[in-house]
Every structure is written in C-alpha cells, then in structure tokens.
C-alpha cells in the first residue's frame, strides 16, 4: 500500500491512471477509512487530494460558486455568501455526521461514495449542481445526478477525479431546502430524505422547481412529476397534497435495517411537503 499527496491535479490524475492495483482517492476519508477498517476495500494506492492547489477553496465566480473537492463541510457552513445563496445545500452538507466528521467530510466525497442515503446529494441535485471532472483525457463538466450509478458505483472512469462542485448564481425569489428523516436527532444515516429548490415570480407563483428524494431508490431520484405539480402554483394545501402523493408514489425503496418500504413511502411525502414549505418561504413566498 502506498500513500501519496500530490500537489497538482495532473500528478494526481497521472498516478491514478497508471496505478496497477485498486486505487482510492482520499478526501475527508470518512467513508474510505471506515471501509478500509472493515476490510471492505484494500487499496494499493491512496491519493490524498487535500493539498492540490485550489481543492480546499470556495470561490465566488461570475456564474456562482465553485466548491473545491477537498473543502470540508464545516467550512461550507462558515461561508456566509454560500449559505445565503444555497441554504438547502449547506444545511444538507451540515447534517453529515458529527462535528468531528464535519471537520473532514466533503460533499464531493459524499457524492462519489454513491450511497443512496447521502445527505448532500438530493440537495445538490435539486440545486442543479455540476461536477468538474478531471481525467487522463481532459476535463468535463457533468450534472451531479449522473455521477452515482448505483449503490457504491459511479460513472467516473479510471484516473478521473472530481475537482470541484459548481453551483449557479441565484436569481431573485429563489430558495432551497433539505430535510431527512432519522430516528435519533444526530449521528444517523437518512432513512429517507428530500431536497427541493424553487424560484418564484413576483406574485409568489412557482416558476421553476426541482424535487429530489434520497434513500428512496438505488440512486437519488429527481422527481420531474413533482416539479411539474409545483410549477405555476403557490403552495396551497391541494398542491402540497399532490406533491406528497407524487413523491410517495415515485419512491422505489427497500426494506432494510433502517426502515420499511411503507415507512419510506409515507415519510417521503411528508418530508417533501415540509421541505417545499421551507424552500418556498426562503424564496420569499408567503
């Protein structure tokens, strides 16, 4: 086993591309080290990306925000402008683990770990976030929802690294929110979750909407039908009821140690309603 700490993205990509055995990218390590401890993975090569230039920065650009792949979630929560623009993404990121885990974990790691229950992913998907991918054959920018392809699997090719996550600049009357259901108050993995991003017109009518559900299917679900049910309306009781019904219906959950199918279905709808209300309020709706 080798541990390296490249200083440039080129070196990192190069080392990963030429690695013979299994290689792992180390960001915050809060998934990777747990899996190594359990003997589920035994990488030959560990590439620590935290000292690559720019990887630990959040930058505000003309188009929005660029969040370096090694930025720990605690830092997201300390970034006032990001929190103001994307409160739902930040609240989702801040739900991951404990204070201790927050000091390390990244949203990129959360995305690439490809757990159906990842907290920041539904929020990122609802936000329409993009991932900048660097690899042996150059760079590409892709929608975050295309990264996870199944539990523990991603669309990234050998040698590819996500450099940063991009979030758009916010127009007026925009708001997003995220909620998850956990049995405890902290330190739990989502049983089911929902992230919603809305923009409104001046009168409070929903102009655009994205609704994403977590832990409801093998990968995060972007529920177009739910978005359609919101667009062109305010959040009246009928709309909320329809939203819940569509979200519950869209779930394809499983029975497991964290919850049952019925429970996830039912609660997905309840959460969607509550999240929509928060996002709507944040967008300035009344």
């Amino acid at each position: 086993m080798r541990y390296i700490r490249p200083l440039s993205i080129e070196d990192a990509v190069g080392e990963l591309a030429k690695a013979v055995g299994p290689a792992a990218i180390l960001a915050g390590g809060s998934d990777l080290l747990v899996r190594m401890k359990g003997g589920f993975v035994e990488p030959e090569l560990i590439v620590d990306i935290k000292r690559i230039g720019g990887f630990s920065d959040i930058t505000e650009t003309a188009d929005g925000f660029r969040i370096g792949a090694a930025v720990p979630c605690a830092v997201l929560g300390e970034h006032a402008a990001l929190k103001k623009a994307w409160p739902g993404v930040v609240e989702a990121a801040k739900l991951i683990g404990s204070k201790q885990v927050q000091g390390r974990c990244t949203i990129t790691g959360n995305l690439c770990n490809a757990s159906p229950a990842a907290d920041s992913v539904p929020a990122l998907v609802a936000a329409g976030a993009k991932a900048v991918v660097a690899g042996p054959s150059g760079k590409r920018t892709i929608a975050v929802e295309t990264v996870p392809t199944g539990p523990g699997r991603t669309s990234l090719a050998k040698g590819e690294i996500i450099e940063a996550i991009l979030l758009d600049k916010r127009p007026a009357h925009a708001g997003d929110a995220y909620l998850r259901f956990i049995p405890r108050t902290e330190m739990d993995i989502a049983v089911v979750s929902a992230g919603i991003n809305l923009t409104l017109d001046d009168k409070g009518i929903i102009k655009t909407a994205r609704v994403a559900l977590g832990a409801a299917a093998p990968t995060v679900l972007l529920v177009e039908e739910a978005a359609e049910a919101l667009i062109g309306r305010t959040l009246d009781d009928g709309t909320l009821e329809r939203l819940a019904k569509i979200c519950s219906g869209a779930c394809r959950p499983i029975d497991d140690k964290r919850g049952t199918i019925e429970f996830r279905r039912k609660v997905a709808g309840v959460l969607a309603q509550r999240v929509a209300a928060t996002a709507y309020k944040r967008a300035g709706g009344k």
Partner: peptide, 15 residues
C-alpha cells in the same frame, strides 16, 4: 445487520 454505533442507535446527547 447493525454491529456498529451508527445503526445500533444508543442515545446521543441531543436526544
């Protein structure tokens, strides 16, 4: 299925 403190849920301080 749950031989760890993440899924064997003992009360945490905020509970």
């Amino acid at each position: 299925q749950n031989p760890g403190f993440l899924d064997y849920r003992i009360p945490v301080c905020s509970d």
